[in-house]
């Protein structure tokens, strides 16, 4: 356990050579999947996820157990609701981690992430514009190296932008940690930005998702024991990291927009024509 912290205090460099406030390389693409309404591919370091959005569309026939363990993470009450239902489906590929570990769809951690994502997006997407409909978001985790939830949120945001679903602003997420081992209350501990898998295992950390470039926190998930005094520093670094991520995602979207204008591809405007604005 002390491996990370001890080397850190000497050179102020982390295991992968980053400084405390450095993000890993983020590479993102949108419109990766021709058949979907919106899609994205996102890499945060070695964490790689793909997202495919279908909808808003008519809710499909309910398959057995879709509301419970199958689909999972639905927000809003099916076709009856006056808001669109956001259904999130996460598939963690067996080959995504170093040791192959298969998680069934009933895995509670995955279900919790599905529910977190659905609630996060439902708060940001203008679901009231699409009554009696459903927005399907399916995410595939191809490789994981820490900050999984953050990567999933960022990828889902990009794909929703690509799908042309009206939303308040970008929801961006990143992780933050602290170099103090948990429970220890040393004052000299530095907060860290964007944890990789090894750091996530050894150090206390949290995932934070914010709305646009405001300080408003949409989701905050902390799963490790940490002194309450560490929280403020971690949250500040995390929120700041989210703003950096937002800049990067914004550039990705703008670059794609420019490319489409140059190519003369006229956006089909999925959902824009038949949407009634109020």
């Amino acid at each position: 356990m002390p491996l990370d912290t001890s080397t850190y205090s000497l050179a102020l460099l982390r295991v992968d050579g980053r400084r405390w406030n450095e993000l890993r390389r983020i590479h993102a693409q949108i419109r990766t999947q021709a058949a979907a309404d919106g899609s994205s591919y996102l890499e945060m370091g070695h964490t790689k996820v793909m997202c495919v959005v279908t909808g808003p569309s008519e809710p499909g026939p309910r398959r057995g157990g879709a509301g419970g363990t199958g689909g999972g993470g639905g927000v809003g009450a099916g076709g009856q609701s006056k808001d669109a239902e956001v259904v999130v489906n996460i598939v963690i590929a067996g080959f995504s981690s170093v040791d192959r570990k298969r998680r069934g769809r009933g895995d509670k951690r995955t279900l919790e992430m599905q529910s977190t994502l659905a609630n996060t997006l439902a708060a940001t997407l203008h679901t009231h514009l699409f009554p009696h409909s459903q927005i399907n978001i399916s995410l595939h985790v191809l490789s994981q190296d820490g900050s999984l939830l953050a990567a999933l949120i960022n990828a889902a945001t990009l794909a929703c932008v690509d799908a042309g679903i009206p939303m308040t602003d970008y929801v961006t997420a990143c992780t933050a940690g602290s170099t103090s081992t948990y429970a220890a209350n040393d004052e000299g501990a530095d907060p860290l930005l964007d944890l990789n898998h090894q750091e996530e295992q050894e150090l206390p950390g949290l995932t934070v998702a914010t709305l646009g470039d405001s300080d408003k926190v949409v989701a905050l998930v902390c799963e490790s024991r940490v002194q309450i005094s560490r929280l403020e520093g971690m949250l500040a670094v995390g929120v700041d990291g989210c703003k950096q991520v937002r800049e990067i995602l914004d550039q990705v979207i703008k670059a794609q927009g420019q490319k489409m204008i140059l190519d003369g591809t006229v956006d089909k405007g999925t959902g824009l024509n038949d949407m009634d604005l109020d």
Partner: peptide, 20 residues
């Protein structure tokens, strides 16, 4: 991270990834 992997996109937009 895999021993072998491949990705295929058909022209109709369907896409699959296999990891071994």
């Amino acid at each position: 991270g895999t021993n072998g992997s491949a990705r295929i996109c058909f022209a109709d937009g369907t896409e699959a990834i296999v990891g071994v």
